[in-house]
Design a protein around this nucleic acid. Sequence first.
DNA 1: AAAATAATTGTAATCGTTTGCGTTAATTTT
DNA 2: AAAATTAACGCAAACGATTACAATTATTTT
Lengths: 337, 337
Amino acid sequence: MSPKPTQKQLAHQLGVSVATISRVLNDKPGVSEEIRQQVLSLMAQAGYAPNGAARSLATSRSGLIAFVVHQSSHDTREDPFYPFIVAGAESFLAGQGYHILFTSLDDETMQKPQSFAAVAERRVDGLILAGPDISPAFILYHLSQGVPLVMIDNCLQNSEVNCVLNDDFGGEYQAARHLIEKGRRQIVFLSGPQEWVSSRERGRGYAQAVSDARLPSRIVYADETTIASGESAMREALERWPDLDGVCAANDAMAIGAMRVLAARGARIPHDVAVFGFDDIGWATLTTPPLSTVHVYKRQLGVLAAQRLLDVIADPDLPPVKVVSGTRLILRQSSGD
Amino acid sequence: MSPKPTQKQLAHQLGVSVATISRVLNDKPGVSEEIRQQVLSLMAQAGYAPNGAARSLATSRSGLIAFVVHQSSHDTREDPFYPFIVAGAESFLAGQGYHILFTSLDDETMQKPQSFAAVAERRVDGLILAGPDISPAFILYHLSQGVPLVMIDNCLQNSEVNCVLNDDFGGEYQAARHLIEKGRRQIVFLSGPQEWVSSRERGRGYAQAVSDARLPSRIVYADETTIASGESAMREALERWPDLDGVCAANDAMAIGAMRVLAARGARIPHDVAVFGFDDIGWATLTTPPLSTVHVYKRQLGVLAAQRLLDVIADPDLPPVKVVSGTRLILRQSSGD
DNA sequence: AAAATAATTGTAATCGTTTGCGTTAATTTT
DNA sequence: AAAATTAACGCAAACGATTACAATTATTTT
């Protein structure tokens, strides 16, 4: 039982040349139907599969896409949702014959982009960079090297890059708008880091909504988006505006923190204060009361990014595109009825 | 600026042969210190990095490990925790110059293991198979092919395989034991699928604990371990044993479901019924009351599996080993004080 | 039926490394 | 100082594909 036949062996058995084998393998023209069938059936019978390395070497394409996240995504972040993004990207890419190389990087290696082996050693055909904490230096380096890449939930300020984003502005606008329509008048926004596009956009959405309704804008800034940061932001908000009656948090984790503080202070949710989150992570259904939030299509983000990336790989001169994925308001109980 | 120098170019610049370059690259003997230094500095200056594909072809080792999960892990499962396992494996492997190829497979491709491209095309040096729903056919096939592999949270019944498991027996024993010590006498176990090792072991742990204490064994079987299945299992339990005062669930999701049902029936937790989960997923802190559970070291599972896998790759004749990772009781409020 | 054209197939170079083996130069031994 | 040993290095053949290009054969055209 020969473990792994090569093209040479198949060719020999059929009395044809390796070129012919290669041609039928790759569905290339120039081989008669008769021989094609013979080769095909021999391949199946012998259990032939092309050697990936040899193929990569010859074509200089590896069939691998690196999915890059920052270490913090699974360390410090509660209920990370990149797994769903990966799942989306993976299932799409698998259909196209691509595989995913999963990498999480720390700040150190982000500062030395040359040392990123996956790219340096030409193991991958392109990059999906997920999350807001991929350093600009890292991104710019790879752009300058002409490495095809797409960012998710992040974008460069001054350069043109392919990226797929949520409709953060629209989502937060709707969330705030909803609270306003329900009669809330003192709505505060618990913002995430200003360096993140998503934070800024969500902030803009909130600001627009309150301004459209001629309500005051009340924002507290946090430097991360965790439960803990939500708690301290909420405390600060209560101090500055004791009569607030609505909260929009930059994400669900912060909203959960906010709800904890409110509950501890004896405020009834949603009766006294309505709360809105963003992202719709799994946890959101478990809080008391269940958290109203803005759903983002995590799986789809992955699919969209992968799709775009393959397009760019196929034609590197494609101009950069910004894809915006819609959101959907999820009304549970924390926002009132 | 020549984008990517090859060994040939370096060799030419220094007036040496490619063999020499290769030797210093791989720290092999047979090159004078003087030349070694010259090569090293030229490499650094020219930004040389070996071509992964060429290397794989020559050595027939790819430096890639496939991390395989079942599709259901991110579709149907609430709060999947394989991301943490991946993180552990990834960080360990990165240190050893390996990368992770992430794959999720559906039942169909599991039934046709030959079609698993990552292995068939020799793109990976080994497999980490995570979770209980990797089909035996899939595993046996790769074992028969001599593909180095390690399983996580799963094991084959009759064959010897490398696997890393949690101390499910011990963990559940302690959990049940804890409830018993707190005076509970009617403890029911909400079991997961009997096909899963972890379910069976947890069941054994529970059974041992109640039997040691001469208490009756009361088990309800569910065919999945979700919130919903926890709810229906709990309903069934209440029907059969209306006077129960303690619940051990096969995992946190089921525990959450159980708590919902209990709360809906007006039972006070933990006063009337104490509840214990298993796994310590992030959600466990958010329930009301916060869920007591058995912590498993998710990250460590990944590290251990990766470690073992590299050992096996280095020496394929290594006999299979079963690694058991300890657990830790986490007492929150659902189990009483 | 000969000439022109098109379709099929083979030859051989190439992709960038690694590595066994032979050669040369340097070192040690007697 | 000649012989024997050792170290340093280059040559060239793998590894297993892909792909110009040439060569052959089959099909049309006139």
